[in-house]
Simulated assay, not measured.
Amino acid sequence: MTRTLYLFSSAAPPVFDIARVVEDAQADGWDVCLGLTPTAARWLDKSLDGLAALTGHPVRWDYKLPGEPDVWPKADAILLAPATFNTVNQWALGITDKFVVGVVAEGIGKQIPIAVMPCVNTAYAVHPQFERSVETLREAGVTVLYGEGGFMPNQPGQGHKAAYPWRTALDAVRDLPHVG
């Protein structure tokens, strides 16, 4: 039985490796549906058709209109990575104007297993709302891959997309409760 992974990404440099991550997730046995924040979709604009062909599903970054059919199968798990400062805070605060944030916010209530790996620098990480948001998501049952064993913030301007721990994120989503 094929499991469906909603792979959601924000506009942070590791998003440029998303095709490889989709392939790795597929090699792990996932049917991948790719969702992006609007800015991430703009960054990957020239790759969207190829990403849709790679996943076999349309890449989404906006809500469907009322009455339109859902073009994706139901999710067995969700991985939101990279998750920017803005995305993490919007999610924790319930601000769902972005498609991916709305789906993960609702995913908590639907009890879909969810993992998130932030991608923030140390200047953002010290903002008091960020730590509150991380704790809010953890308290809601989300696996937050931040700190030891997950993403460690770098100094502003010192991040390298190749250093982003994608394999850690994919392993974590595989190991989520209720994901077989």
Rank of each mutant, 00 (worst) to 15 (best):
T2C: 09
R3Y: 06
Y6C: 02
Y6L: 07
L7C: 04
L7T: 06
S10H: 01
S10P: 00
P14D: 00
V15R: 07
A19N: 04
R20Q: 14
V21H: 06
E23C: 09
E23F: 09
D24N: 12
A25S: 14
A25Q: 13
Q26G: 06
W30Y: 12
W30V: 07
W30P: 06
W30R: 07
V32M: 08
V32P: 05
G35T: 09
L36N: 02
T39L: 10
R42P: 01
L44Q: 03
L44I: 02
L44V: 06
L44C: 02
K46G: 07
G50E: 08
A52K: 07
H57N: 13
P58D: 00
V59D: 01
V59K: 05
W61Y: 14
K64G: 02
V71N: 03
P73I: 04
K74I: 10
I78N: 03
F85P: 06
N86D: 01
V88T: 14
N89L: 12
N89P: 12
A92D: 03
G94P: 08
I95F: 14
I95M: 15
T96L: 01
K98M: 11
F99W: 07
V100I: 12
A105P: 03
E106A: 13
G107P: 04
G107M: 03
G107S: 02
P113I: 00
P113Q: 00
I114K: 06
A115E: 05
Y124G: 12
A125G: 08
A125W: 09
V126R: 15
H127A: 10
P128S: 08
F130H: 10
E131N: 13
E131G: 13
E131I: 11
E131L: 13
R132L: 14
R132I: 11
S133C: 09
E139N: 15
A140W: 13
G141P: 10
V142N: 07
T143G: 07
V144C: 14
L145A: 06
Y146E: 00
Y146S: 03
Y146A: 01
E148M: 08
F151K: 14
N154F: 11
Q155F: 13
Q158T: 14
K161C: 08
A162L: 15
A172S: 05
A172N: 04
D175S: 15
G180D: 13
G180L: 10
